[in-house]
Design a protein around this nucleic acid. Sequence first.
DNA 1: CTCCTTTGGTTGCAGTTGCAACCAAATTTA
DNA 2: TAAATTTGGTTGCAACTGCAACCAAAGGAG
Lengths: 150, 150
Amino acid sequence: MKKTPEKHTVLAWARLLKVSASLLAEVEQALKAAGLPPLNWYDVLLEVSRAGPTGLRQSEIATEVLLPKHNLSRLIDRMEDRGVVTRRGCDSDGRAKQVCLTDAGEALLSEMWQVYGAEIQARLGVPLSDAQQHSLADIAGILLSQPKRH
Amino acid sequence: MKKTPEKHTVLAWARLLKVSASLLAEVEQALKAAGLPPLNWYDVLLEVSRAGPTGLRQSEIATEVLLPKHNLSRLIDRMEDRGVVTRRGCDSDGRAKQVCLTDAGEALLSEMWQVYGAEIQARLGVPLSDAQQHSLADIAGILLSQPKRH
DNA sequence: CTCCTTTGGTTGCAGTTGCAACCAAATTTA
DNA sequence: TAAATTTGGTTGCAACTGCAACCAAAGGAG
């Protein structure tokens, strides 16, 4: 089994990391400029919103958003402090907490989307053709479906 | 001008961010498991190594590695503490510092590459065909060449 | 030459992340 | 049922990041 990558593999890798880092930084910057919270707030709000009024457990959010549990715990602390979500003990499982969206949370979600969506369009939708966007999604999909073998 | 992205644009975006985040986390994990420092050390070591014995200014490294200057300043502090680079005042510019690689730094660079390169190969080289790798590099290249319009 | 602005780099402080230890409620094993 | 393990979540502490202020050396404009 080959251990050292080919040049073109390294090139793809380097560009992938660089482009995602700079896109991320630019979007965070845009959100901040609009006086809005960082991107991971959006991810959480979106997941919780999708789950409907029953809400979602923290552990479910954590795996969805790729955030370690202890990290998510404090993120939810801050979000609860600003009143965009609520934590409620779960009936069926005494340890779990159900996280639900408040009205303010729903409002923030759509407010963030106005900025976030525009950024996505400007930075991915505009510069890439439809075919390229599909190709990118396909390739990323392959990588995401790889087993995580640690 | 369109402000809201199409579904396939959002899909490509979401997968791009998710895949880079998880690849990054897995590689960091592999480095730590091997008792090695984090990825940004590698990036800095590589840049400095490429510059040869004259070294590189911090500001040049910072733009190359996409790290804010104050952040890089302290990263170099840590690296200097562990003896992998040296800071030396620049002759032609009294403010600047030239950063140079030590022998230990060169050793660390190649030690990290053994782990890092294997990860790249396993996570990108193996799952993707050559055509897909080229396609990914092309698309990322387009995005990187976009003006950063803030 | 003097004032003003820019550039390269550092530092203090607050906010966030990572790690490990911890608690309590399930779940499994015996 | 009692003991051992796993799972969901929190907390303390150290490390790292972001922001803004700062200092000193260059570079320009009058």
